[in-house]
Design a protein around this nucleic acid. Structure first.
Lengths: 339, 339
DNA sequence: TTAGCCGATGTTATCGATAACAACTCGGCT
DNA sequence: AGCCGAGTTGTTATCGATAACATCGGCTAA
């Protein structure tokens, strides 16, 4: 704490403006009835002194806060950053500031973040559904004193509100897409399914939908590599080497699918002639040029907006439903044939 | 604030454990001399009640905190997320929690974030250098009461410590790379240079290095599109249409370079035969497969680590230098010819 | 025996704000 | 004149913790 000079408090502003601390507090919060003249003097004094309110004291006293905690698994994953931008777009104009924590899909890290965030008594907390949650974290959330909202998962309702897609529906959509095109030698490529339970749910839905059609889904996954392009490429190479008969692949997300595609191109396996590919998320759609990946588009920004709106309603003590299910759209690209 | 039952405070734990509040406080912080028996009783009581310390009160009273504020321009930009992971890797084991804010390169948003973060009296604040900063933000930082560290910019020393590359050096490196290969019809492609002052500095260094060699740099930029692949592609198309003579392009970052490359391939312009391409950051190196972009690799994670280490030193009141300059390496790929 | 010290625990004041209510001014009305 | 109420400002208690110091047995050393 390199203190540079004296810390300015309400008291200093009050002395300078020639009023009481309470009056300063009211002016700066815009509360109560204060004469225009006093308001001006107080504001000027605060400006001149460079007064910065101490939120620790303010929130402690009022038992209110305009801070919203958001805990996401990975800030580098475009999916979550777009959800976040929807959240920010909704909350900032209402005077709330979001503080973000990154859990890296680690339950212990998530638990520590929840503890750290809740101990600042935020106005609300938004966290990602569909990841393993520690017993401690469950306990913290059970005794929370602010609204809590689940993001990215609508299958498993939890907390005060859930906003996200049905991952089971996503798995079924992919299954139907393959089946409609007569593809029967199907593989799934993913990573970190022990951590990303939403992805796991998509996988299981795909598997069981195919099983219902008498098809056995081959899965190639690993738990110790990130859910990214390089991993998609690596696993695809393994898959093609060991199971050359495969003619359709569903990837955990678009990033992995693009990595897989790069290998397929290089290996001279025509897409979709020889192998059909489907991703998930729709993050690739923005930059799609030569390769337009067939994928399931998820309205990422809207999910953030809906979650934030629900939070605002709960704070305002207005009734809200228990969830919002994000619509999914299977977008036909050129990595699978048109039906 | 959906309060669920009573909020548990130190008082409740104290009553349950049959000791005073102070004793509970000491036990839970691991401070002072408390008998093993008392410690056990207090911990058990806290567990049973599900006690969660109120950081607002604690930090207010002790004037200390283990929260570190990090404000980055964009959480979706891999560059910053890797810097952040270096920060987290260093701070978390030391018991600090980072709270992240996203400024979107907007000075007003950054100002509000600085205000919001500082009003919680963090143990330190890390912010991105090289973006336009409002007068208000400068004022807030000037009167801050915690160490402040600048990330990603080492040319313009500021705050208590700066960790980042010299963007001027980067510009010169690219200029030399082109000159050594006899390339003289050179263009720069970038976006949002009014916001991203580091990129602007690289651009200016490139421009003046080339000018010194008698070469006029052509620049194709736009201020209202993001610094991403799609923009790189769009601008490259414009560039090629209007200036077909160009035979070397430096892009603001790797993402834009990859976008540009996708257009060059499609347009049938061989790389590097017809056009040489250089990026910046090194983010593409991880996933590089067919196309290995020539780029300047920046040790992104290390920058975060150095910044965090400096913060820890300052907090411990140990002396630190005023900056750490990140080494830059121009990595030869296959988008420029080998010298 | 008794001063002195140590480990263990409690007491009091304080951190910097806000809630709730008290008090005061002033003009208008009866 | 005296009362009322709107508008304005101040007083007191409180939020939930920690710092600093006080207290209190018991045990050691002179």
């Amino acid at each position: 704490m390199s203190l540079r000079g004296k810390v300015i408090t309400l008291h200093d502003v009050a002395v300078r403006a020639g009023v009481s601390r309470m009056t300063v507090s009211k002016v700066l919060r815009g509360a109560g009835n204060i004469s225009a003249d006093t308001r001006r003097r107080v504001k000027q004094a605060a400006d001149e002194l460079g007064y910065l309110p101490n939120n620790l004291a303010g929130s402690l006293s009022s038992r209110k806060s305009r801070m919203v905690a958001v805990i996401i698994p990975s800030i580098s994953d475009i999916v979550f950053s777009e959800v976040l931008s929807g959240i920010n777009a909704t909350l900032r104009p209402r005077g709330f500031q979001t503080f973000i924590g990154e859990s890296l899909f680690e339950p212990e890290t998530e638990t520590e973040l929840i503890r750290a965030m809740l101990s600042f008594r935020p106005a609300g907390i938004l966290l990602n559904g569909g990841m393993a949650r520690s017993v401690d974290a469950e306990g913290l959330l059970a005794r929370r004193n602010c609204p809590a909202i689940q993001l990215w998962d609508c299958d498993r309702r939890a907390l005060d509100f859930s906003a996200g897609p049905s991952h089971e529906e996503a798995g079924r959509l992919v299954a139907n897409h393959f089946l409609e095109r007569g593809l029967r030698r199907i593989a799934y490529v993913g990573a970190e399914l022990d951590k990303d339970l939403c992805a796991r749910r998509r996988y299981l839905a795909l598997k069981s939908s195919l099983a219902a059609a008498g098809i056995d889904l081959l899965s190639v996954t690993c738990e110790d590599r990130p859910r990214q392009a390089a991993t998609g490429r690596f696993l695809t190479e393994q898959l093609v080497r060991t199971h050359p008969e495969i003619n359709a692949i569903h990837f955990l997300n678009d990033a992995m699918a693009l990595g897989g595609l790069s290998y397929l191109y290089e290996a001279g396996l025509p897409v979709p002639g020889r192998v059909s590919v489907v991703g998930f998320n729709g993050t690739s759609l923005a930059n799609a040029v030569r390769t337009r990946l067939t994928t399931i588009d998820v309205p990422r920004t809207v999910i953030g907006e809906k979650a934030a709106q629900a939070l605002l309603h709960i704070i305002a003590e207005e009734p809200v439903p228990d969830s919002w299910q994000a619509p999914l759209e299977l977008v036909q690209g050129n990595t699978t044939v048109t039906a």
